[in-house]
Amino acid sequence: MAREMMFAEAIAVAITEEMQRDPSVVFYGQNMAMTDRDPFVRKFGKDRVRITPISETAEMGIAIGAAMNGLRPVVELYMAEFMLVAFDEVINEAPRLRYMSGGQVKVPCVFKAGFGFAAGWAGQHSNCTYHAMMGIPGLKVAVPSTSADAMGLMRAAIRDDNPVVYLHHYMLTIDKGPVPEGDHIVPFGVADIKREGTDVTIVATAWMVKKSLAAAEQLAKEGISAEVVDPRTLAPLDVDTIVESVKKTGRLVLVDQAPRHASAAAVIAGEVAEHGFEYLKAPMKMVTGLNTSVPYSEPMESYVLPSEEKIVSAVKSVLARHAAAV
């Protein structure tokens, strides 16, 4: 039995249920739990649910220390860019300490934030920071695209014994979707085929999955069968499922909201180039953010970001390239 749930609600439910299940899970951040009426405070009390000052270094650094002494903190950072203020904790503390200790400590904590807010937030609050985090050994990065994945990945993140950056796309916040009943968990490193197809593989994450599914729907009307693969976690990355899909379709379009250079799409393209080159019937194509910061004004913002039309056009182009080659 599935229930309908908004994306943000699915995340909140996952955190709530994990806190009920495990008393070592704590949850804190800025501008939350401000009064005793807060639902988390009411359920779990002020030891486990706390408000913090605007101090990202301390918020995440304290999570790391708490994790090493027996808690499983979930830190609400709100916007992915706020992690950049304290990137040392994300990149050079949380994922390094276990390794440098020779495996003696573990650092189970979740850094949760929204990202990619393509709604007029301009250059500093609209970015896709995952590409700067997915290449750090010891750090895991989750980027859900549906309510079910949002819930299942948050549960997995909290139960994981490693630091996890959990990034939820702002443009998906109020989208509704089915969520399985019970202890629904989405394991890390397992991609999901969001739509099956035979002519072309589209790999996309988060909001781009929604756009790719819409593009696939449009393509279907024109007789083109697109398969949409969502990695769901960028670290670890399920290369096998992507290569298997390419083996089936022979063509690949990579969609990424981040600018092209050093994007997740570029990393996936590299993996397919090494492990799936022989299956490609045409050169792969990347549909990414253009090489700019995100502009404020709507026509410019739309122009630099991937769209349904750009995805459709890229798919047709890889199919045409094939036809031309034959």
């Binding site: 070592s24 995440m60 650094g61 790391i64 220390g65 708490a66 002494n69 027996g70 503390e93």
Partner: peptide, 19 residues
């Protein structure tokens, strides 16, 4: 990294407080 361990120590103290 200079100073970062200060936050980790406070975090360990937070765990001590909660537990």
């Amino acid at each position: 990294i200079i100073g970062q361990g200060i936050a980790h120590a406070a975090g360990a103290a937070y765990a001590a407080q909660v537990k």
